[in-house]
Design a protein around this nucleic acid. Structure first.
Length: 272
DNA sequence: AGTACGCCCTGGCCGC
DNA sequence: TGCGGCCAGGGCGTAC
């Protein structure tokens, strides 16, 4: 499932291909993609003839800056953005629900098996307040002090890490992996973390997200980059979906519990 | 405020 | 081979 690193890998793949290019035509064939947030006049109509000034990312959202308006794309569980140029690259199939044709050459396809993703238009000036996502964990603002403030809560630390309104872009995989590297149990109450644990957690979050980007993402089931290639980070997971296997650090069997309705993986010895 | 539950959706997997 | 049933899970609405 695409989280911050996967979205960032795709964004970097797409930047040289779409920035500065004009959208010649657009088609969105699946109404579920646009139903959740209304776009008067329709999303496709808002795109035709517009130039992509910049392609940014905020948490797990893509932001195609078109000037006055922006196209927002969220991949959900199984969404993919796939690039095709000059008969090379992706060919659309039954799960391909939308595409943007760029002037010159190149088609950007949106493919999504489970249709949990969405595409919508926002006025560019209101993107930040509408998306309501918290601090970028790879940004300068994500200091130990800031994480410490967010941890003044009785919620369990994993739920806090996955709360998009507090910290942007961390999903189930990177939450479990960061907590393992910080040696913290996912069930711990956020407010119980000591200052050195906060610092360790911040460092672990940044480390796993950067490693995820470096290895071009975690391909658990459906994730592919913009060229249709899987990422390599899943092979480096220490706990995620490794329940029943030995911890690489201490040999203890990795456990799986359900926390906040999500499968949660941890080492009972390394994480306290 | 925190947590649980159901919903959306469908391929994959299990048992028969 | 096939079919029913269940699961995963990001985000959101609803309920407690």
């Amino acid at each position: 499932m695409p989280e911050l690193p996967e979205v960032e890998v795709i964004r970097r793949d797409l930047v040289p291909r779409v920035e500065g290019r004009r959208i010649q035509s657009a088609k969105i064939a699946e109404p579920r993609l646009t139903r959740r947030r209304g776009t008067p006049g329709g999303v496709a109509a808002a795109l035709v003839g517009r130039r992509v000034k910049a392609l940014r990312r905020r948490g797990k959202f893509f932001i195609f800056d078109l000037g006055r308006d922006s196209l927002i794309v969220r991949l959900g569980m199984t969404g993919q953005l796939l690039w095709s140029e000059n008969r090379h690259g992706f060919r659309p199939d039954q799960y391909t629900h939308a595409h943007l044709v760029f002037q010159g050459a190149g088609i950007l396809y949106y493919r999504d098996i489970r249709k949990f993703g969405e595409m919508f238009i926002l006025p560019t000036e209101s993107v930040e307040q509408t998306l309501r996502v918290g601090v970028e964990p790879l940004g300068d603002a994500f200091t130990p002090e800031m994480l410490g403030e967010k941890c003044r809560s009785s919620t369990r630390i994993k739920s806090l890490l996955m709360n998009q309104a507090k910290i942007a872009g961390i999903g189930n995989i990177y939450a479990d992996e960061a907590l393992f590297r910080a040696g913290i149990r996912p069930t711990r109450r956020a407010a119980s973390l000591r200052p050195e644990e906060i610092r360790s957690l911040r460092r672990a979050i940044r480390l796993v997200l950067q490693a995820g980007i470096r290895h071009r993402g975690s391909s658990i089931a459906n994730y592919r980059d913009a060229c249709g290639e899987p990422g390599r980070f899943a092979a480096l997971h220490r706990v995620y979906q490794r329940h029943g296997e030995d911890c690489h650090a201490c040999g203890t069997t990795i456990r799986r519990i359900v926390l906040g309705q999500r499968g949660t993986h941890f080492c009972p010895t390394c994480q306290r």
